[in-house]
Nucleic acid binder design. Sequence first.
DNA 1: TGTAATTCTTGATTTCAATCAATGTTTTTG
DNA 2: CAAAAACATTGATTGAAATCAAGAATTACA
Lengths: 175, 175
Amino acid sequence: MEDTLLRELLIDSRILTLPKNEFLVKEGVVDQQIYYIESGAVRVFLQTEFEELTIRFGYKDSFITSLSSFVNGTPSEFYIQAIRGTQLRAISKQQFQAAIDADIRYLQLYNAILEGLVIQQLEREVDLLTASPTERLQRVLKRSPQLFQEIPSKYIASYLRMTPETLSRVRKMND
Amino acid sequence: MEDTLLRELLIDSRILTLPKNEFLVKEGVVDQQIYYIESGAVRVFLQTEFEELTIRFGYKDSFITSLSSFVNGTPSEFYIQAIRGTQLRAISKQQFQAAIDADIRYLQLYNAILEGLVIQQLEREVDLLTASPTERLQRVLKRSPQLFQEIPSKYIASYLRMTPETLSRVRKMND
DNA sequence: TGTAATTCTTGATTTCAATCAATGTTTTTG
DNA sequence: CAAAAACATTGATTGAAATCAAGAATTACA
C-alpha cells in the first residue's frame, strides 16, 4: 500500500544527478524538497567550529531531506553531500502537500514515515549514549551490516563519534 | 487549535498518581498509553549491563510515553520513573485511534506532534555528537534553562553522557 | 526536628581514546 | 598508466574525562 502511493508521487518528480562530493543542500539555504535516492549515497552533516558532525547517511531506495528545513521552512543547518555519483528524484513540499490534501492516505503515509523516523532516531540516541566505541560500532553494524560497503570509513567514524584511527583499531579487534 | 483538541482528549482520561521513584512503565512491558504530566517530573531510561542511559525527561504540561511500545505495540525497552511525586493523565492508544478515526484533525494533530518530536530529536542528536562536555551542557541549558530546578544532577549527567563528577566540575567552570 | 541516607563536590590517580607522526594502500585524474 | 592525492592503518605519546576516595551538603523520614 505504501509502495503504490509512493510510486504515484514519484511519477512527476524532478530527476537530479550529482557527481561525487557535490552538495545537494548547503547550510543556510531553505530547501523544502524531499529526495528519493535512485542510486548512489549521500551524507548529512553539520559543520561546527571544530569538526564535521555526521548525522545520517542516505542509501539507494530511501528518502533524504534536511528535515528541519523541510518541515519548518527554516534555513538548513546541515549539508547534504554526494558520497559518490548519485541519482535522485526531488519532490517539493507543495507537491507533497497537494497529495495530502487530495487523498487522506497520503497523510496516513506521512504519519507512518514520521513514526518510523522517530523510532529510528531513538535507536540512534541509544547508540550515541553508549560509552564504549566497540559497542557503538557493533550496535550500528547489527542494523546496517552493509555499512562499510556503502560508506567510507572516515564518515562512519564521524557518525560514531570517534576518530578514524579509533574506528580502524576497533574493527581489527572485532575481526 | 491544537490545544482545544488536546483538552478534548484529556476529558475522559484516567488520572494517575505516582509517588517518588515509582515506575510508570517497566522494561519488557507492553504499554500503549500516552501520559500527560499534570505535575511532577519523570525520567525515561534504558538499563544496560553497565549503566543507566537517560533518554528523556518529562515535565509538567507535556506528554510522555515509551514511544516504540506505544507505536509498535512491542515490549518497552525503557523504564519511566517518577523523579518526584507526579500526577498524570493516561490516554490509551485505542482512545487516541478512535479520535483519529472520528476526526481528521486528530490525525493532523498527531502529525504535528510527530514532526515536533523528530525536530527535537535532531537537536538531541547534535548535542550527543558534541565532543566537549562543556558544550554539551551549554547547548542543553540554552533550550532548557530550568533543567537544574527540575531534575537532580545525577540524572542530568547521565542524560549528557558524563559522570556526575564531570558535570559538577563543568558547571563550576561556567559559573 | 534530628538522624540516616542520599546526593553533590572536591582532590588524586588511572585509563582509554585523541592526537601526532609515519607508512602503506587505494583512488583520482591528467 | 603514472603520479599525485586522499584515505586507512599502525605505533608512540598525550590529555581529558572516568574512576576511586573522602568529605560536605542536602534531602528523606521516623
